[in-house]
């Protein structure tokens, strides 16, 4: 369930915490395992992480369902997380989200048919002076316009 490579990455995180506090690494461990499994967590992968960190399955499930950055349904290869909070809203985020939805032919929360892209509306990403903005995977894109969005999205593969 957890690859050797993933275990190595998880071990790196475990080292940051005091002896016996390896469950501190659960948030990263879930991300690492998620990344290896189509960007998605399953009941079994959560249990596997819990077992690896020697914590109850339900405790790992609590974490996996509390935080936003875990997916429990199929998502695209690229996840566009579009901020729709106040500063971005004031700068036209809603129209741009609509634009993106039309362009991709999906609603927020859905995945494109080819499985390439999914779109999520999210709360403030802490880049409000660059509003409107979104995040694709690890990267922030700020001061978005419809044209800019087209360019960025067209570049995804």
């Amino acid at each position: 369930m957890i690859s050797d490579n993933a275990k190595k990455q998880i071990d790196h995180w475990i080292e940051k915490y005091p002896q016996g506090k390896q469950s501190s690494a659960v948030m990263e461990a879930l991300k690492i395992v998620q990344a290896e499994n189509d960007n998605q967590l399953t009941h079994d992968s959560i249990q596997a992480v819990a077992d690896y960190l020697n914590m109850p399955g339900i405790a790992a499930a609590e974490v996996a369902t509390f935080y936003e950055n875990y997916n429990h349904k199929p998502v695209g290869k690229h996840i566009i997380r579009f901020c729709h909070n106040i500063s971005c809203m004031l700068n036209g985020a809603d129209d741009l989200i609509a634009h993106l939805e039309t362009k991709l032919g999906v609603k927020t929360g859905e995945v494109t048919k080819d499985g390439l892209i999914s779109v999520k509306k999210v709360e403030c990403l802490g880049a409000c002076v660059g509003a409107p903005m979104f995040q694709i995977n690890d990267k922030y894109y700020e001061n978005l316009t419809a044209d800019k969005i087209d360019d960025i999205v067209d570049g995804l593969q």
Partner: peptide
């Protein structure tokens, strides 16, 4: 330590819970 998407972890004791590998 990296968070995983929860505004409430900015509250200092939620943040501590989160470092301990729990919900915030």
């Amino acid at each position: 330590h990296l968070g995983a998407g929860a505004y409430i972890c900015g509250e200092e004791t939620a943040l501590l819970e989160s470092i301990e590998g729990k919900k915030g």
